[in-house]
Amino acid sequence: MSKLLYITANPKKEPRLSKGAQIGEVFLETFQTEQPDVEIERMHLYDMEIPRIDMDLLYARAKLSFMGYTFDQLSDGEREKYTNMHALADWFIAADYYVFVTPIWNLGAPGILKEFMDNMFLVNKTFISTEQGPRGLLTNRKAIHIQTRGGIYSTGPMADFEMGDQYVRKALTFLGMDVMDTIVAEGMDHFPKQTPEIMAKAKEQAIEAAKAMAKRTITT
C-alpha cells in the first residue's frame, strides 16, 4: 500500500478558513479516487512538537559526526532531541507521495516549515556526500507544493522576491525527490473580486496534478 503525507503549514487548517486547504482537499479527493488504496496521513505542523535545532541538537550532531562521541556519551537532553529528530525523519521517509500546502508570508514560507525541514537534512539518511557533491537519497518519492499568495509573484516586480516556493522545491529536490510543478493561487488580496475564478483555476490544476501524480510509478 502506498502512503501519502499531506503537510500543512498554516494556523488556519480548516478548509472553510484556508484557501490553501480548500485546494489541498480537492487534490486529496482526486488522488484517492485514482488510488483508492492509498494511505493518507495528515501532518498539521502547528499541531506538532517539532525538534528545533538548538544548542543540544547542534552539539549532539557535532559530537556524533566528527568529535568521536558515542550516543551513550551524549547528555540526556542531547540524546532525547537527537532521537526525536531521527524519529520524525523516519516518519517522513516512510511515505511515497508528499503534498505540501503553505501560504507565502513575508516573501517566504512560514518559519515552522523551515523548522520541520531542518529535521530532514540528515547525512547518510536522506542524503550523502560524494566527490561530485551531495546526493539525495529519497529518489523514489513524488512531491508537490500548493501555495497561496495574496499578491502577484509569478511575474512583475515581485517575481525575484518569492522565496517560499523556491525553498520548498529546492529542499525536496536536494533530498532526491521528483518534484512536480507547483500549484499556485495568487493575487487574491490584490484582486479580491477575482478570488472565485482564481480558486476555480487552482482547483482545476489540483485535479490534473493529482491524476498525474497518481499515475507515476513508485520505484523501490
Rank of each mutant, 00 (worst) to 15 (best):
T70H: 10
P192A: 06
M199E: 08
L107W: 13
K193Q: 11
R42K: 15
R141P: 04
L57Y: 06
F174D: 01
S18T: 08
S18R: 11
Q147W: 00
T102W: 02
T195D: 03
T220I: 14
I50P: 04
K142Q: 10
L113I: 12
E39L: 15
F71I: 13
Y69I: 11
K193T: 08
A159G: 03
S129W: 11
E197Q: 15
T130F: 09
P11K: 13
A171I: 08
T220R: 15
N124W: 10
L172M: 08
I218G: 03
I146K: 05
F161N: 06
T33Q: 13
Q73K: 13
G150A: 12
R135P: 00
H44S: 07
K215Q: 07
D160G: 09
G187I: 12
F71D: 04
R135I: 15
M85S: 05
L5Q: 06
I128P: 02
A212K: 14
R135A: 12
I183C: 00
I198P: 02
M117T: 12
A87C: 01
K142L: 09
D37S: 08
K142S: 05
V99Y: 01
D118Y: 07
N10D: 10
N140W: 00
K201R: 14
P110Q: 07
G68M: 11
M163S: 11
T195W: 00
T102Y: 04
E186P: 05
T139R: 13
Y97V: 06
V184E: 00
L57W: 07
H145D: 07
K12M: 09
K203M: 15
M48D: 00
S2F: 04
L4A: 08
D96I: 10
D76Y: 08
E131F: 09
L28F: 04
F27R: 03
D178E: 11
F31R: 01
P157Q: 11
K215N: 05
R16M: 10
K63A: 12
G77S: 15
F191G: 03
E80K: 15
E29D: 10
R61D: 09
G156M: 05
N10I: 09
E34T: 13
F116Q: 06
K170T: 09
A109E: 09
R61G: 08
L88W: 00
K193I: 05
M85I: 09
A95W: 01
D189V: 10
A206T: 10
